[in-house]
Design a binder for these strands. Structure first.
Lengths: 340, 340
DNA sequence: CTGAAAGCGCTAACAA
DNA sequence: TTGTTAGCGCTTTCAG
């Protein structure tokens, strides 16, 4: 693949390479006619500026790295789509890497991106931990970074987060209003920052509605369906089932529903189930899964724009925190059916 | 972010920049001790070779573009993960772009990648069409391209495809063996190459088992849940329901199940449903969805390796076609329950 | 085994 | 407005 270069175009038209360069970068002075002639000829010759050379001479890569825990589930996939939409529009390339919910791989990915001289990074951390120290050091060194979703409170950097506490509270309150008396919260592992917020929201609702201590419980479960299933099996064995489960994620909720059904319980007649982070299939299953919708698309767009601001403003930017709201999507699985 | 360059390291050690370069590229002659000294000092100084400069001087970008219809669903997400695993391992960066099942956006993405001087492209086409002409021209011009999944038969290029016909045949035969007498196939739109293969497999099974014409039908539906729902609603209205549906995709299957249930039909007791392209949630719903598992991970790995071969062998490679097999994952939704 | 030097294709002062 | 030229940071001949 022999590529045509700026020289070829310049020679053909007997102009200097700078003129050709200028024609392609409209910030410089150049006569309109020459410009148009150059552009036209370049087009005919099939010339296209070599981005690598451009990057080198401008000391800018126009690469943005995005590191997410995974993108098999819709949540991060949608965030990525939104990020790409904004950044590609602005002339950047987006490198997506997944860290398999593994902090070490996450760090490795971030380092790869930094070494590849990306102009900025969007990080959706896997879980709290030492990585944050490294990230903060990079930020202080001037590397534009924006965090998304599972960001520890402690960190002072630009971030786009979802108000887990608030919406966890609303979700729980919805269950209480449905007259469910005994409610268990299946939470993520506590090394995920947002898990703590979700628990806080849950407990706040318990407190507000003066639910007695013996009528609620928080069980550290995880994010996966099978983890939800294991917990429910255990509870069944212990004969310790609540009236309603508030689950940390939709996969967990689906695992819970499955296990309950397999054991002869009807959802929601016998036991209600509420999920979190709405997915397309939530309304395709029976019962339709009630959950909290997070604004994935908005999260991605805002993160990308925050990063662009950081990249474009040389002055040290104040860290900006965007706290986003969701929506309670009420569906069958949470509804108290008249079992009276 | 001031970066340390090869010069800094060279100056510090009073060696030439070529020695430093050689130390980092072990294909050259260099004394072991100097090499180790350089590497050690470089490490201490925090030096890392600038990949952009490397790319420019080697006239190789180490970028691979991957264009998929979407990656919100697991299918392509898993393929991407596998591709990345292989390529990153081999020192390449992977640029993922999605074309929203839109051939024009797909072409635009591919052009962006080619202009960005990627060393190769993996394309999972949206649907058959004129784009193929452009792609073939690029291949002839020496651009390494590997196709995945929805590839028209006509195209002679390296490709990794799934044997849709065969597994569609097996899936259909499974339904027949379950004693379902009247079977409808809800297919994708016919401008998707694999839809045709799926239909062929379905029809082959009908023929082999001598199903009468009035007892089977192929209905062009699409890939989405709502499209499946619309078709079933229509069939219910026309009172034209079969004993079993063989659906082009799991979303369609889930839409079908949902609509049937909402209208008082039990799946599989009244009507059986078979999906295609297995997903994680298939076994979390009730009834568990029977479908055909495709080897997404393998597809991605093979595609990446085919591409690497093309990139590394300058001699014009013969196009290689890899036809992969799947697995019939038998679950409740297809099983004839003794309604006798 | 090591160094000098010519590029890779482009940008961006500086001159003209 | 245009051309000249010196880089950007690295690889890779060619000498030594």
């Amino acid at each position: 693949m022999k590529h045509i270069t700026i020289k070829d175009v310049a020679k053909k038209l007997n102009v200097s390479i700078s003129s050709v360069s200028r024609a392609f970068n409209d910030k410089y002075d150049i006569k309109k006619e020459t410009r148009e002639l150059i552009l036209k000829t370049a087009e005919e010759m099939g010339y296209f500026p070599n981005p690598i050379a451009k990057k080198l001479s401008q000391r800018k890569t126009f690469n943005i790295g995005v590191v997410v825990p995974e993108f098999i589930n819709e949540f991060y996939a949608e965030i990525i789509v939104a990020i790409q939409e904004v950044l590609i529009e602005n002339g950047f390339q987006v490198l997506v890497m997944q860290s398999d919910n593994n902090p070490e791989l996450e760090l490795k990915n971030v380092k790869t991106i930094i070494h590849s001289m990306a102009d900025g990074i969007i990080i959706a951390p896997s879980l709290d931990g030492d990585n944050m120290n490294y990230y903060m050091k990079q930020i202080e060194a001037g590397c534009p970074i924006v965090f998304v979703n599972r960001v520890p409170d402690s960190i002072t950097a630009s971030k786009v987060i979802f108000d887990h506490k608030k919406w966890s509270f609303f979700a729980t309150e919805h269950l209480i209003r449905q007259q469910h008396k005994k409610i268990y919260h299946l939470s993520a592992h506590s090394n995920i920052s947002v898990a703590k917020d979700q628990i806080k929201g849950f407990l706040k609702a318990m407190k507000k509605h003066k639910i007695k201590e013996e009528n609620y419980k928080t069980i550290e479960t995880g994010l996966l369906a099978k983890e939800g299933m294991a917990i429910v099996e255990d509870l069944i064995y212990k004969q310790d089932l609540p009236d309603a489960f508030f689950c940390v994620s939709n996969p967990v909720a689906m695992g819970v529903i499955k296990t309950l059904k397999d054991n002869g319980y009807d959802v929601p007649r016998d036991i209600a189930v509420m999920g979190f982070t709405d997915t397309q299939i939530a309304k395709l299953i029976s019962p339709q899964l009630c959950s909290v919708k997070q604004p994935t698309f908005e999260m991605g767009k805002i993160a990308a724009n925050l990063l662009l601001d950081q990249i474009n403003n040389d002055k040290i930017n104040e860290p900006i925190t965007k706290l986003l709201n969701g929506k309670l999507v009420i569906r069958e699985s949470s509804i108290k059916t008249s079992s009276t």
